[in-house]
Simulated scan of single mutants.
Amino acid sequence: MPVPLSFFRSETSQRLRAEGMAASVLVLLDQRGIEVSEEARERISACRSTEALTTWLTRISTAKSTAELFGRWGPMATQLSLLRSKTAQRLRAEGHYERYIQGYVESFTEGYLTGTAKSILALLDHRGIEAPEEAREHITSCRDIETLAVWFDRAVDAGSIADVLVAG
């Protein structure tokens, strides 16, 4: 049974997008050699505010520490895993758990792709690299995780949009 499209606009899907953005923040911090304490790592991983995550993504290029990265954003509450939620328990009891997992995986993948594409564009914008609408559409419509990961890595040091999207 296919998952209704409304699921991808749901609160759950938004949380999954945030997880993808949080993963991007951690990758960039690692690439910049910024030490991330276990507390900071948990704070980033648990963050579900795309507004905060977008702010952090734009601060990464100049931040020298996680304290500078966080700025005014206070600690975020840790969310329980969707797989341990009451909804998951109810669906498991009703025998619908396989479809729930399928929907979770599909939503996570969509959220990760969307979050990574938004992270690339936010990083380019913050670095002052102009990305024409055609390039933005190319990035946001990409559905290959490996390609997005390569583009994200390139966006850290790229001098132009061509440097990010170059083949190979």
Results as ranks from 00 to 15, higher is better:
12 T>S: 15
99 R>N: 12
102 Q>F: 12
17 R>L: 11
138 H>R: 15
39 E>W: 00
5 L>E: 11
61 S>Q: 11
72 R>E: 15
59 R>Y: 02
98 E>V: 15
120 I>L: 09
109 T>N: 09
93 A>Y: 01
110 E>N: 14
39 E>P: 02
53 L>P: 02
65 S>V: 10
104 Y>L: 07
127 R>E: 02
30 D>Q: 10
88 A>I: 13
162 A>C: 02
72 R>C: 09
47 C>T: 11
98 E>F: 15
147 T>R: 13
161 I>E: 05
115 G>A: 04
167 A>Q: 09
47 C>P: 11
60 I>E: 06
40 A>P: 01
111 G>Q: 06
83 L>G: 08
165 L>M: 14
66 T>I: 14
162 A>D: 13
112 Y>A: 08
81 S>V: 02
61 S>A: 13
91 L>M: 00
14 Q>H: 14
71 G>L: 05
122 A>S: 14
112 Y>W: 15
139 I>R: 02
115 G>E: 08
164 V>R: 03
57 L>N: 02
117 A>I: 04
57 L>M: 14
89 Q>R: 12
46 A>Y: 06
122 A>P: 07
128 G>Y: 01
43 R>H: 07
57 L>T: 01
72 R>I: 14
44 I>L: 09
156 V>S: 09
89 Q>W: 07
75 P>G: 03
99 R>H: 14
33 G>T: 02
35 E>Q: 07
156 V>D: 12
82 L>E: 15
5 L>W: 11
85 S>D: 01
158 A>F: 01
42 E>R: 10
93 A>D: 07
138 H>F: 15
164 V>Y: 04
96 H>E: 09
84 R>C: 06
112 Y>K: 05
92 R>N: 04
64 K>P: 08
116 T>Y: 04
142 C>A: 10
19 E>I: 07
12 T>I: 10
162 A>K: 13
18 A>V: 05
161 I>R: 05
8 F>R: 04
87 T>M: 13
68 E>C: 10
156 V>P: 06
61 S>T: 11
76 M>D: 05
38 E>R: 12
162 A>I: 06
40 A>D: 06
71 G>I: 01
134 E>I: 02
26 L>H: 05
108 F>V: 09
12 T>V: 14
26 L>W: 08
148 L>Y: 05
85 S>W: 04
150 V>D: 13
28 L>C: 10
29 L>Q: 03
90 R>M: 07
128 G>W: 01
166 V>W: 03
156 V>K: 09
32 R>E: 00
33 G>E: 05
146 E>F: 07
50 T>N: 06
132 P>M: 01
108 F>Y: 11
44 I>F: 08
11 E>W: 00
51 E>A: 13
13 S>E: 01
114 T>H: 10
31 Q>L: 08
7 F>A: 10
